[in-house]
Each structure stands twice: as structure tokens, then as C-alpha cells.
Design a protein around this nucleic acid. Structure first.
Lengths: 228, 228
DNA sequence: AGAATAGTGATCGTATACGATTTCGTACCT
DNA sequence: AGGTACGAAATCGTATACGATCACTATTCT
């Protein structure tokens, strides 16, 4: 019926994946990550089903999958809401992310070649440019690109998956809990450069892991200092 | 005739939780972890539904949740099978587990009090006893108990969750891929004792993390040496 | 005989319908 | 006036039915 009733969110049914469960999963996930559905938002199965032009069964399945990823909380006979209102969750997520990102960086480091480092460095310089004009969205996106380059050859897909899940959680939290910390951005860029140098020089895994971990921890500390 | 069919509904095995999705989830998960459903086992929705006395919809949902946890692989219009036939998966899982267990141990260490250490040590001594009579099942169970004591006060639930997921994956793999390595058991017990001493003496987080990580890595190495 | 193809059975995918549970508003009682 | 009990609306939970897709087999053409 209401095929394109949802405007402003173009790609919902055209999601290349075959099954409607998959479409629903991708659609809801995208809305959470991009901030359309903010933490605490009530996800009513029937409404989402109607918006997406599918039945409730595939939507229900999608919600459950999102629950398994920690993006949604689900209560029997009550309903689903977008997770992540609690600042404590932010702390847990950042801590976990510091660990898995550290490991992912250390594992990837030996496999990063010259061109990849050059690409990462270019992205980082773009980030440095961003510092002048206040643009948190762009900065965050570039930050993710930077780390994506570092991880693209990570030999352990499980760890990479954990990193992506952490990023998704953060994206969901960002819109409400997390606020861009201006004073932190410069340090972040410097640490990136630092990390690249370590990788270039073939530093040992332990050093790289520690540096990557602290890079994430520093962001957490900055957040804590700001909210105090 | 079938109007009062409700009275004759057979028990859903050992299920306990409320919704049937949950029951199906727990039931299938238990069968995978305990080894009734071995890797490669074909999970036909309709058969499982019939076995459990429920419809296919909740079973389908349960399977998808298990897929998200990595215990099941699912292919559209083909079916679901118990995951984990690939030895490479074993490697990935062990590597990931070494990282998250290491972090969990380091985070928990400062919170482990005297009685807990005593309990862990008692379990470890039981494991030492096991070395004489060949009993891999009991050994594995005690090993899990040992680490559970260490982690029971882990301040970050996300990390703890990752540990448990890893354990579940291993349990699913164990029955086929993994074989008990007799020569490794003694080393494992020694490392446990080592770990306890470190914790008792208040060693710094880095040392403990590294020790815990190597404890897991050593098992992986032993497996690799054996299969060569 | 070998390969391509059409037919058949099995299994998944989703829509619809109905039942179960919770929540919230309203009226009643104390 | 405050609290409690009842009832209606909303929402989730699951069974059933039917359609779509895939694997496998038998048949036919070259």
C-alpha cells in the first residue's frame, strides 16, 4: 500500500538483500546508526512493518537480531526500544572497543603496506583540516575511514566484527550521550600520526596494541572530564 | 476435539523461560553446546518445531539469534546448519578468546578477594587430580569453573559476554574439531597456579593480561602442534 | 553415452488471523 | 481526596496457510 510513504529515508525496500527480514534489519539498523531513531525511541513492530511495507514477522526477526547486537532492548509483551541511554553503557562500550581495536590494529599492522599508510595519512590530514571549521559529523566519518584503512586486512574476521559492532553502538549513542569534544580532536589527530609512524617503522605488536588502546582510552577520558 | 488441545501440550524438554522463542533458543543452544547437534548438523525448522512442540516461527527466530552468535550458519531457502566445521574458525575463536579473556582477567584481578582465590585454587587442585584418570569432560568443566570464579566480578559485562560467546563456540567445536591434548593439561594447571599467584601479589594489569592471554594461546599452540 | 532440461519434492519466507499479556484510563469505593 | 478495581485499547506471541526458491532426479536431445 504505502510503498514510499516514508520520505527522507530513500533506501528501504531497494536494499539489495533478498529477504524482507534482511531488508528490515538493514533499514532499522541504518535508522538507529544514522540517528533517526534515537536511544529510548519506541520501536513498535506494527508501525515499522507498515512503514517498510512488510509484515510484522520479518520485522520482529530483524529486531531480535539487533537485540543480539546490543542496539535494541526488548521486553516481552511490552516492546522494543533503541538501546543506549545509559552513560555507563558508553563507558563499557568504549572500554571494550579499546581492547578489540587495540588487538585489531596490532594484528593488522604487519599487513599494512605503503599505499595503505599513505591513504591513512591523507585521511588524517583531512581531519587536521577539519579542526578549523567546526564539523563533528565529517570529523567522525573521517575518523572511521582512517581506522577502516588500518583494519581492512585484519586477519581475524571475528575481531573485526567486534570492532564494527562497537562502532555501531557508539553511533547509536552519539546523538544523545556523546558530544564532540573540541579539545580532544587535535590530540586524536596527533595520535593517528603517531600510530602510523609506529606501523611504518615496524614496531612490535605490543607497542602498537598499547598505542591503539590508549588512543581510544584518551577519548573516553576526555568525555569523562567534560561531563564532570 | 482439538479445542482443549492446550491441556495435552507436551513439555518442551527442559525449557524454563516464558516465550516459546526463548524456549526454542535455549533448547537448540543447549543441544549445540552439549554436543547433541554436532557441527554440520542440518537444522530443519519444521523438524525442530515438531520436536519442541511449537510452530516454525519461534524456531526460526531462535535460529537467527544463534546465527548472530556464530553458532549457526544460515542460507536463504536452503537451511541452517550447526557452524564450526572449519579449523580456521577454531583458530579465530581461540585468538579472539585469548584477547577478551586476557582483558577480563586483568579487569577482574583487583576485585578478586581471598575466598575467591581459595575457591579457584581448590578447583585447580581438582583439575590436577584429574590428570591421573583420563577425564576430558570433567577437566574441561572444571577449567570453565576456574575461569568463572576469576571473572565473576568482572566490571564490564560486555567483555564478559564476549567471553561466554567464545566459550559457547568452543563447546560447539569441541566435539568434532577439538581433541583433548593430554600433554597440554599439566601446563594448563601450572599456568592457573601461576595466574593465581600473580593476582594474589597484586601484579600490575599488564602482566596479568599477558599471562592470561598466553594461557589461552598455549592451548592453541598445543592443538596446532598435535594436528600437524 | 553425456549433457542439458523439465519436473518433483523439500524447505524456507511471509502474510494473515487470533490469542495472551500488559498498560492506561476511568469509575467506584473507602 | 486518595487508592483500588475493573475494563478497554494497544501490543506482542504464535499458529496456520500459502507462495517462492532451491536441490535433486528422470527424461530427452545431440
Amino acid at each position: 500500500m504505502t510503498e514510499t510513504a516514508v520520505t527522507g529515508v530513500p533506501e528501504l525496500s531497494d536494499a539489495s538483500a533478498g529477504s524482507k527480514s534482511e531488508q528490515a534489519y538493514q533499514a532499522v539498523k541504518a535508522r538507529i546508526v544514522e540517528g533517526t531513531f534515537t536511544p529510548g525511541y519506541r520501536l513498535v513492530l506494527s508501525i515499522i512493518a507498515k512503514d517498510l511495507g512488510v509484515s510484522v514477522v520479518p520485522v520482529r526477526e530483524a529486531i531480535r537480531r539487533l537485540e543480539a547486537e546490543g542496539l535494541v532492548t526488548f521486553e516481552r509483551n511490552v516492546g522494543a526500544t533503541v538501546a543506549g541511554i545509559d552513560p555507563t553503557e558508553y563507558l563499557y562500550t568504549m572500554q571494550t572497543l579499546s581492547i578489540v581495536e587495540g588487538a585489531a590494529t596490532a594484528l593488522s599492522a604487519p599487513l599494512i603496506d605503503g599505499p595503505a599508510i599513505a591513504r591513512a595519512r591523507a585521511i588524517n590530514e583531512e581531519m587536521r583540516d577539519c579542526l578549523g571549521h567546526f564539523d563533528p559529523v565529517r570529523f567522525t566519518r573521517l575518523n572511521q575511514d582512517f581506522h577502516s584503512v588500518l583494519f581492512e586486512h585484519c586477519p581475524n574476521p571475528h575481531i573485526l566484527d567486534l570492532v564494527h559492532r562497537g562502532w555501531n553502538r557508539l553511533a547509536a549513542l552519539r546523538s544523545s550521550t556523546f558530544r564532540f569534544v573540541p579539545g580532544r580532536a587535535l590530540g586524536s589527530v596527533e595520535e593517528h600520526e603517531n600510530l602510523l609512524t609506529l606501523i611504518e617503522n615496524g614496531a612490535d605488536a605490543d607497542t602498537i596494541e598499547k598505542a591503539a588502546r590508549q588512543h581510544r582510552t584518551a577519548t573516553l577520558d576526555a568525555y569523562l572530564a567534560q561531563t564532570r
